[in-house]
Design a protein around this nucleic acid. Structure first.
Ligand SMILES: [Mn+2]
Ligand SMILES: [Mn+2]
Ligand SMILES: [Mn+2]
Ligand SMILES: [Mn+2]
Lengths: 218, 218
DNA sequence: ATATATTTTTAGCCTTACCTAAATATTTAT
DNA sequence: ATAAATATTTAGGTAAGGCTAAAAATATAT
């Protein structure tokens, strides 16, 4: 049985590996987990002894098969609980992350299965992120950043790159939500800002914001 | 912010105080928490410094007002989660305790309020135990053990003294559940066993089992 | 190629929450 | 009232998961 701390390390390494397939560096893990590099070294040694990661001194870590399975299961639990909080308890999407961080560590496989069923086997969480199924399979959708969409192309908002509370509230304020149709009407060459149509509304969006929106790539 | 361990101590002391209003002894706490008396002494000193319990060496502990408030809130959370697990996720009443033991430590007042609302503000948990309201008030119902009911008196099953999984499954097997009408048909003087009518069924019940059933006292 | 900067590890400490064994206080029995 | 039994506390130790500061390895710049 893993501790909450061990579980959090595995999940962080998993997310870092998605960004950099070579593995996760000590410093990157430390930054992500708000801790010190020396603490990371300690923990990584322990995870390595348990064969949950592959670690070579000074070379960073990668998850082992066993470690990845646990990490994906944690992601599954996190996202299922986020669905529960938003769909059933009426939380907003910027309120659920910290609570799901706690709930994901509750130990009961039965609970996860029954929660999944109760929610109707959702495939994406409130932020548009995919929910791994019972076997750990994740459906990958082809997606493209809004900033890379051609002018006059229409697509559907699938998910977010940055799910920070600030960005979520920016989207709320501008009535942008997952599943909406978005069309690029014009690109401003000077600052790469975009004029877009979201639903029926026209609006201006910065390059930075456009970078953070993933659309369905057809 | 209290640790899970500190919270568990407060809850155990609370339950022990309900049995013995003078307070909880070191040994009683150790037994209840499956730990050693010396560990209890350590923790009790810490809780005393935080003014959550009143502690005098060799004299056991009582919860302070502050400590009791926290303990009651934990009981509230535990029982709300048990309702969720049984009513929404279709767990049986003998499966929910250990999961609720974990869920009760999730930190979010908002979560508790919203869960309460989602469940329709329940007043009792699946075992018939009362759920403290938002202000910590617990509705006390007059109740009497089945073993103390007069012959030919009818009453309603309110709750259980012993909620062990074995007893819960004994009740399931005999189709006895919270809310049912029960009448004592006869008492056997030799072993104090009872012939009772539960719903429409007649059955024999031992003194031990009858001790564990609380009925509404009119 | 060498010097400098950055990253990572090691060494040594701290706190929490446990433990065992020994000492001390309290309770119970004679 | 004293002895024996029981309950509680103290002393000293462990493992987990943090930390800082110093040492060592690796990466970068000249
Ligand atoms: Mn999240
Ligand atoms: Mn999410
Ligand atoms: Mn319970
Ligand atoms: Mn209960």
């Amino acid at each position: 049985m893993l501790s909450t701390s061990e579980e959090n390390y595995l999940k962080s390494i998993y997310h870092l590996e998605l960004l950099n397939s070579k593995g996760a560096s000590t410093n990157a893990i430390a930054k992500k987990m708000n801790t010190k590099a020396s603490s990371v070294t300690d923990m990584v040694k322990k995870l390595s002894e348990k064969e949950l990661v592959v670690y070579k001194k000074y070379q960073g870590v990668q998850l082992s098969k066993k470690g990845k399975k646990i990490a994906v299961y944690l992601v599954r639990k996190h996202r299922l609980w986020e669905c529960f909080l938003v769909d059933k308890l009426d939380f907003t999407w910027d309120e659920v992350h910290d609570i799901a961080e706690q709930l994901e560590h509750v130990k009961s496989d039965d609970l996860v299965d029954k929660l999944d069923k109760f929610l109707g086997f959702p495939t994406v969480d409130p932020h548009g992120d995919p929910i791994p199924d019972k076997n750990g399979n994740i459906t990958k959708r082809k997606r493209i950043q809004l900033s890379n969409l051609e002018v006059n192309q229409e697509s559907i908002l699938l998910g977010l790159k940055d799910s920070s509370d600030e960005f979520l509230r920016y989207l709320d304020k501008n009535e942008i939500s997952i599943g909406q149709k978005i069309t690029v009407l014009a690109k401003e060459p000077f600052d790469n800002s975009l004029t877009i149509k979201v639903g029926k509304k026209k609006m201006l969006i910065s390059q930075k914001a456009a970078h953070n929106l993933y659309l369905l790539e057809k």
